[in-house]
Design a protein around this nucleic acid. Structure first.
Length: 542
DNA sequence: TGAAGTTTAA
């Protein structure tokens, strides 16, 4: 029954020559949940090099429907099909509801009141993980659960996840309200909570706020110790403000004794910023303070020279390490091999593998991933695939990066079917596909104007709860616009802005120019309004 | 993600 309804729905969707898919995708994501297993639709099975305007329609006449009839029809069908048949546990039932569009997090609760599932702690965490890019449904659900008398209190872990989601989506006012709420509920705020707050503030370039939060830690019952200081230093360094990190460090170190990590964090910050003199100076300070520079300190320096392609200096540091009795490890070797590969020095890169073996250092997943990357970049996709097989055979665990690297390589070599095979395998393995897995395929579809395949991929993403992140929206809006799919581009742009994701000025301009060129003034006005809306939202956030 | 390394990025 379920399969039948899905088929009918999908068929009717594709039957209308793509016109309404985009509206449905944008307006009613729940549609995608009706499939129990996913297969490639027939039209995909035609090979890409066989000309078939029907399959890879490069000029479909997409139109926005005048009313929302299609959407409400789909809702009716989906509702009829749902109970008991397709819903696999409470998680799916709740996701089904949460995938609708909500104007605010308050309205989410009203929609959820209609369902009668038993909420458990693990269910809350699963839902939060699935909606970690969509704060409105996540927060609405979180509040709704909180209001149910039988649930009790959220666990500190769930609170921390929610804090992180709000921070990631730059909802800082709500984030602070939640932290205050945690304070009122007892001693729920921990260093882990405040770590999320500090990292997200620094990530939004609110460096002063991040520093102020550190100074206020004790108000939240969290100790201002070396561990907390390191979180602040690391957040500042990772968000490219190593100068701030240094100032904070100089200010704090008389009150809070640093450890070796504090120095290594700073060394890493300087190295990433390409400031090698400062990095060397910090290594000296580290020794003066009584900490011996370790493999991490040296590896940071090596990475900085690798970025500059200064492999002679890399060798000099390796020699110095040996003198100090500090042996390079798999991380050191990965960095060197990767950089040689990127500098098109493949032979030398491969020699690193031998050298590592002689040192008795065992390759790990990241090392393999790196090797797969440089081999495919050098056009040796067959060797890369062979390595992947070797990993499977030798029991070296694969991770999402292994798959994502291979998918991207396959797309770059126009091996679309291999990319699909990998994404399918991924779904069946323990590492689930994420936005990065789909990214290269989406990009290729935009470039080749494969609208149907693109629609299929988006359906597949929604089905697997892979939410679109800002990068993917940007890719789609720009990609569709560049390749002449202006209306689809506008729709996605609208969805992006309404979700509170800030678009880059470049994206605005690209769209406006294209609409101008095509004299589509109505849409131009609409995009302009959305742009103003986005700007005022951004101002509110600041 | 979080004291160092791997994919993605106009």
């Amino acid at each position: 029954m379920a399969r039948f309804c899905r088929t009918v729905l999908v068929a009717s969707l594709y039957g209308v020559k793509d016109r309404k898919n985009w509206m449905i995708l944008s307006q009613y994501r729940g549609l995608c949940c009706i499939s129990e297993s996913h297969e490639l639709p027939d039209w995909f099975k035609v090979r890409q090099n066989e000309p078939s305007s029907d399959v890879f329609d490069s000029d479909d006449d997409f139109m926005i429907p005048a009313d929302n009839q299609v959407i409400s029809d789909c809702r009716t069908v989906v509702r009829k099909v749902l109970p008991g048949e397709i819903v696999d546990g409470c998680v799916d039932e709740i996701c089904e509801i949460l995938k609708n569009k909500f104007s605010s997090h308050e309205t989410v609760g009203l929609a959820l009141d209609a369902c009668s599932v038993k909420v458990s702690k693990s269910l809350v965490d699963k839902i939060l993980r699935r909606f970690n890019n969509d704060w409105v449904p996540a927060f609405g659900f979180f509040k709704w659960v909180d209001s149910r008398p039988e649930y009790g209190k959220h666990s500190p872990g769930s609170y921390d996840m929610m804090v992180d989601i709000l921070g990631k989506c730059k909802q800082f006012e709500l984030m602070w309200q939640l932290v205050d709420g945690m304070m009122q509920c007892g001693r729920l705020v921990s260093l882990s909570t405040m770590t999320k707050v500090i990292r997200r503030l620094a990530g939004a370039r609110r460096w002063d706020d991040a520093i102020e939060t550190f100074h206020d830690l004790e108000l939240f019952g969290v100790k201002k110790d070396c561990l907390a200081m390191n979180v602040l230093l690391d957040s500042l360094c990772k968000e490219r403000n190593v100068n701030y990190a240094r100032d904070v460090f100089l200010m704090l170190r008389s009150q809070i004794p640093p450890n070796a990590s504090s120095f290594n964090i700073l060394i890493h910050g300087w190295c990433k910023a390409g400031k090698l003199d400062e990095a060397k100076q910090t290594i000296k300070e580290m020794s003066d303070f009584g900490f011996t520079p370790c493999v991490i300190s040296y590896t940071n320096m090596i990475e900085a020279y690798c970025i500059k392609k200064d492999f002679e200096s890399v060798d000099a540091i390796l020699a110095e390490m040996r003198c100090q009795g500090c042996l390079p490890n798999v991380v050191t070797y990965t960095i060197i091999m990767h950089s040689l590969g990127k500098a098109n020095r493949i032979q030398e890169a491969l020699q690193v593998c031998d050298k590592m073996g002689r040192d008795g250092c065992v390759p790990d997943t990241s090392f393999y991933n790196s090797l797969i990357f440089i081999l495919s970049r050098a056009g040796r996709l067959a060797d890369a695939n062979h390595l992947y097989e070797e990993m499977c055979k030798d029991g070296i665990p694969l991770n999402a990066t292994t798959y994502n690297t291979l998918i991207s390589a396959s797309c770059n070599h126009s091996q679309v079917e291999n990319a699909f095979k990998l994404i399918k395998e991924m779904g069946e393995s323990s590492c689930k596909p994420d936005t990065k897995s789909y990214h290269p395929l989406l990009k290729l579809c935009c470039k080749r104007k494969w609208t149907k395949l693109l629609t299929y991929l988006l359906l597949d993403m929604f089905e697997k709860d892979v939410s679109l992140d800002p990068g993917t929206y940007t890719l789609l809006v720009q990609g569709l616009c560049r390749y002449g799919k202006l209306q689809q581009s506008c729709l996605l742009f609208e969805e992006m802005v309404l979700k509170g994701i800030s678009a880059k000025p470049h994206t605005f301009n690209l769209l406006l120019e294209a609409l101008d060129r095509n004299s589509i003034y109505g849409a131009k006005e609409k995009i302009h309004q959305l742009m103003l809306h986005a700007q005022s939202m951004r101002r509110k956030k600041l």
